[in-house]
Design a protein around this nucleic acid. Structure first.
Ligand SMILES: [Mn+2]
Ligand SMILES: [Mn+2]
Ligand SMILES: [Zn+2]
Ligand SMILES: [Zn+2]
Lengths: 143, 143
DNA sequence: TTGTTTATGAAAATCACTTTCACTGACTGG
DNA sequence: CCAGTCAGTGAAAGTGATTTTCATAAACAA
C-alpha cells in the first residue's frame, strides 16, 4: 500500500521532470503514516519533530504535489485550516464531523450519491465534485 | 416578509440588551434587499455606495449579529470569502455551484436529507447541521 | 439633560497561507 | 567522476480576508 503510493509519487515526479529529494521522501513517509485528515501545520509539526531542518513552505508545497499526483485531496471543514486526506484509487467518501471533539468519521452512501446526480441533472448541471459533511456530536460526546 | 425579519431582529436586539442603531438598521435594509449569497465585501460595497460613513468592521459585526439572531447563515463555498445567506423559518436547502461562472442554485431534497439522518444515526452521531454542495458546470457554462 | 454603557470606524493585528529570493543540492552529459 | 544547469529549499516577506483594538460617538435609562 505504502509501496504503491511511493511508486505512484516517484512516477509522477519522473513524468513531470521534477526532482526526487530527501525532503519529499520524508514528507511522503510522514503523510502515509498520518491520520487521515491532517492540516498542513499538523503534518509540519510531526515532520519537524524528527527533521528540524525541513521548512513549513516545503511541507506546504509537497502536499500540493501529493494532491496533483492523486495521492491526496484537499479538504476544508470550515475551521479555517486546509486539511489533506489520503486518496485511494476508485474510492470516494463523505464525512461526519464531531463539533465538540473534532472526530471525523468517513462514510459512503451510493444511494445519496445517485440522488445527488439526479438533482444536478434536473437542474442541468454537469457535476465535477461534491462536498457533503454532517456536523454534530459523536457517540462519545453525546454522553 | 421584510417586516417580519425586522421585527425578529429588533426583538433579538432588545432581548440581548443591545442597542438599536442607524447603522444596524441600514445594513439590515441592504441585507434584506440583497442577493441570496453575499460576501461581506459585496454587501459592504453596496452599503458604502449610499452610506460612505459606514465602516467595514460594522458590516462585518452586524452580519454576525444577523446570524446569531437567526436571520442569516454563514456559508463558505471554498473561494476564500465568507458569504451570508437569508434564513427563512423552517426552510432548508443545499447548493449547486457553477465552478466556471459562480452561479448558485438552491435545491431541496427531502429524500437525501432523510438518508443523511440515517447515516448519522447508524454511526451514533447526533446531527446539528450539514453541508452539501454540488460543484460543476451550470447549463450556460456547459455550452 | 446626564451618566453609563454599548457601538462605531480607522487602523493595527491575526491567521493561514503563498510567494520571493539567495543559496542548495539533484541530475546530466562530457 | 565532475562541473554545469536548473529545480528545490528555508527563512522571511507578502497577501487577503477577516478580527481586534481603541479613542470617540451615539443610545437610552434615570
Ligand atoms: Mn461523496
Ligand atoms: Mn440540506
Ligand atoms: Zn466528539
Ligand atoms: Zn456557470
Amino acid at each position: 500500500m505504502k509501496r504503491v503510493k511511493k511508486k505512484l509519487f516517484s512516477d509522477f515526479i519522473a513524468q513531470k521532470g521534477l526532482k526526487s529529494t530527501r525532503q519529499r521522501d520524508t514528507i511522503l513517509e510522514f503523510f502515509l503514516a498520518s491520520d487521515r485528515h491532517m492540516s498542513i501545520e499538523e503534518l509540519y509539526l510531526k515532520v519537524r519533530a524528527k527533521h528540524p531542518n525541513i521548512g513549513y513552505a516545503t511541507v506546504y508545497r509537497t502536499l500540493k504535489l501529493f494532491a496533483e499526483a492523486g495521492l491526496a485531496r484537499e479538504i476544508q471543514f470550515g475551521d479555517g485550516q486546509t486539511r489533506y486526506e489520503h486518496v485511494n484509487e476508485g474510492e470516494h467518501h463523505d464525512h461526519l464531523v464531531c463539533t465538540r471533539c473534532g472526530t471525523i468519521v468517513e462514510f459512503e452512501n451510493p444511494v445519496i450519491e445517485k440522488l445527488q446526480d439526479e438533482v444536478a441533472l434536473s437542474h442541468g448541471f454537469l457535476i465535477e465534485t461534491h462536498k457533503m459533511e454532517l456536523y454534530g456530536l459523536c457517540p462519545k460526546c453525546r454522553k
